[in-house]
Design a protein around this nucleic acid. Structure first.
Lengths: 249, 249
DNA sequence: ACCTGAACACCGTTCAAGT
DNA sequence: ACCTGAACACCGTTCAAGT
């Protein structure tokens, strides 16, 4: 038994030494391909992600990727899944059980928000790709996280239908706030390859004509302020208050 | 003056009679191209919208479209703009001025919701495409509608920053709820061209393993229930209550 | 003025072939 | 076992040319 295992290991090691791999390259794997896909979109934006381009960024031809990924659509799904699964590697360490369901939802909200701000260009995928079941609601779109969610709430006083209603309300809340936040934060990070058709020095800043839109013109400084943090906290607090009214069913 | 106008009109009419057009086809125009683009996505889904396919559905080669539309990206932007502008053709007729800002927001919320349910496959574009200014927040993404919004609220007791905060909260609310609603409603309407790789009779329904996910398994009937209408109304009511607390600034 | 044929660069994807 | 060359079908887009 032990000998067999050693032999197999030795053989693996041997064949690994035999194969000549370009020096700077790691051995390919699904995780590596998916991880590089996420990093690629983080750097260059979603439209830039092509099978050929991703292959090149891994030092390989595009066709090699098809051994680890079932086409481009499967790659995108895997990228989303990879990010959403990450929500579990950080178990609720900082969370006291005494905090109750409010503490759990606070932790979860900020965990998902961290995902959105870390990957503003990938988050639209998390938000809009069809989940694997129709009753899964982005961005809480994995079976595991739904199970956690329902467990956390039902074990802390929620009735069945109240827990499900909370899942729905919480998903909508996260989706709306984080998608808008990711969009505005991601817009500044794009390589900006679209605004170069105009020959003259056109100003890219959209100016508001005060005759047509007097209020918008006057309030533009307010509209341009970045209040994402406090908006999120206030809206979250309000949602928790609303949920509190339906705890017992 | 009047004669000149008549002459021009006559000339236009003349050239129109000269040109021989395939019998069943309307004369092309930007509005026609954009409108057909929306109808095409409604029928076949977003991935099916190609310049060649859209041209064919208009009885024309793809290259003809470039006379009316500045490429595919411009077409998508125009489709979004077309739908959002429609929110103004329906001025607040059914709305009594006595209803106050709550009445306006109720009307606007249902108008945008109608847009989402009428075009579930296009709404993701309304939700995720970059607006023309960074401080415009989907789905309330036109200058005109923002002006209306701010006018409606500031003329009904809102301070400047309260009106802007309301715009932000309202956008997030609409985006989260309507994007999820459009996704679940649109998923059933797709031609479904992706699930046909498996050779055997694989069941497309995702089954929940009760050992791994006991709660999700038990609550699956609740999770699958369609509660979109009442969820939307309740969440909207709650948002209006929240806004009420910050009317005076 | 309005539409098209032909062409270009670039996709995703398959498969037989290399090592 | 793992990667690639060659090929295919299909994109978006341009432009000279037709009517």
């Amino acid at each position: 038994m032990r000998n067999d295992e050693s032999e197999v290991a030795a053989t693996r090691e041997g064949s690994r030494l035999e194969q000549e791999r370009p020096p700077g390259r790691q051995p390919l794997s699904r995780d590596l391909v998916v991880g590089r896909g996420i990093a690629f979109v983080d750097e260059h934006g979603l439209p830039a992600l092509t099978m050929r381009g991703l292959g090149q960024s891994l030092g390989v031809e595009a066709m090699s990727l098809y051994r680890y990924v079932n086409g481009r659509e499967d790659l995108l799904d895997a990228m989303v899944e990879h990010l959403v699964d990450r929500l579990h590697l950080d178990p609720a360490d900082e969370m006291q059980p005494a905090d109750g369901w409010q503490g759990y939802l606070q932790w979860l909200a900020h965990a998902v928000r961290g995902l959105a701000t870390d990957h503003p260009h990938v988050f639209p995928l998390v938000a809009t790709r069809h989940p694997s079941a129709p009753w899964l609601r982005p961005p809480l779109r994995s079976l595991k996280i739904v199970e956690d969610f329902l467990q956390a709430l039902t074990s802390r006083g929620f009735g069945d239908s109240a827990a499900v209603a909370a899942y729905r309300a919480f998903s909508s809340f996260l989706l709306g706030h984080l998608l808008l936040e990711a969009a505005s934060h991601g817009a500044s990070t794009v390589p900006a390859e679209e605004v170069l058709d105009e020959g003259d020095a056109e100003v890219p800043v959209t100016e508001v004509d005060p005759d047509d839109f007097p209020l918008t013109g006057r309030l533009r400084p307010l509209l341009s302020e970045d209040r994402d943090d406090e908006e999120f906290e206030i809206a979250l607090e309000s949602l928790l208050n609303r949920l509190e009214e339906m705890v017992g069913h």
